[in-house]
Amino acid sequence: MEKKLVLHFPPILVDKPMISTLIRDYDLDFNILKAFVSPEEEGVLVIAFSGTEENLDKAVNELKSKGVTIQLIESDIRMIRDRCTDCSVCVGLCPVGALILDRETYEVIFDAKRCIACGLCIKGCPAKAMVSSI
């Protein structure tokens, strides 16, 4: 299975090679979707891990025990339904089909599970209906 997570590393942990140890110990594959240092000097990694469910859980627990804060990615990119005009300009921008135009109702639907948090829709949405807490 795959898990997409946002990892917040406190400043003291930023330089530690934690991820490489983790993937070796728990036999995981990973794909870094976004990495940056926040204004509070936290290291932020948006990452997709894949491996067995058991090992993924163990890996998450280990990260937590070392002081890394973890968020599931779905909670980071949100659609503010009230602001969305269903224009669909984000639909052509989204690289993974996480924004979908229902061709019956012409409503635009955000499928958080597919989102890789690339941020394109945030810049592209005229109504500023796509927001992120990253």
Binding site: C87, S88, V89, V91, G92, L93, E107, G124
Partner: peptide, 14 residues
């Protein structure tokens, strides 16, 4: 093949 997006809302037009 190019994905399209609209700036005008068909749903609200309807």
């Amino acid at each position: 093949e190019i994905p399209t997006g609209s700036l005008s809302s068909y749903k609200t037009a309807r």
